[in-house]
Amino acid sequence: MDVPVHFFLMLSAAMFFIGVFGFIIRRNMITLLMAVELMLNAVNINFVVFNRFLYPDYFEGFFFALFAIAIAAAETSVAIAIIINVYRKIRSIEADDVAEMKH
């Protein structure tokens, strides 16, 4: 592999902070979820890159990324369920509108 490890890591860092930026500027809950997916993805890349470049004989980073993907799937399904439920109650998915949990 002739691309230096730094480039991969910088790419993932950029992706992560773009996710942070999106999380801060958006109010729609689904968009927030997508920003979180971006951040998770960036973290996954980090795991994989460290594993591949520094400890290629083992699979720790590989499996962490794998499990993170699974957990992200679970998280997304629950989050979407909550979002749809909230939408059903208050007809809105703006994060600021969910001021109280009881309706």
Binding site: V20, F23, I24, I25, R26, R27, L32, A95, D96, A99
Partner: peptide, 12 residues
Amino acid sequence: SGHIQGYVFVFV
């Protein structure tokens, strides 16, 4: 405030 974006901002 309950605005999660604010929390994230401060946290980051």
